[in-house]
Amino acid sequence: MDPARKRRARLIVALTVALTLAGALVYTSFASSTEASTPSQVMRASEPGRSYELTGKVVDGSVEREGEALRFRIRDRTGPASVAVRYVGAVPDPFREGREVIVSGTLQAGTFVAERDSLVTKCPSKFTKEQERS
């Protein structure tokens, strides 16, 4: 093969590989992503079995332990709508009532059943702001 054709062939192969990989990247990310929603959205548009990433604030006085599991309610960042959460797994150190958290799971019979170890507490430096307000 003459060098020019060889180079073109290489270019085509390289571009094909790159496009395939880029396609895989886009496809897998959309296919395996979890949607972030607020408690009121989850309650309203609850498709059973569908996986959500619930974000909101832990309701004051709602945290209680039930054997291995932790039960608490998460409410909208603005507004009183809240959903009950049942969670098993590691609890991050900054977890507190009133803190903003993210947890993934599915809605089952009115309770948001979280995946193991999916609890994330947002932004630990928020607490400086809380103290400022008080």
Partner: peptide, 24 residues
């Protein structure tokens, strides 16, 4: 890069804020 900014990408393209996790 794609995974880190996916919440922004997803919101721009589909209007829904979604994210990809460590398994991805």
């Amino acid at each position: 890069l794609w995974g880190t900014f996916f919440p922004l990408i997803s919101e721009a393209l589909t209007g829904r804020e979604a994210s990809v996790g460590p398994p991805w």
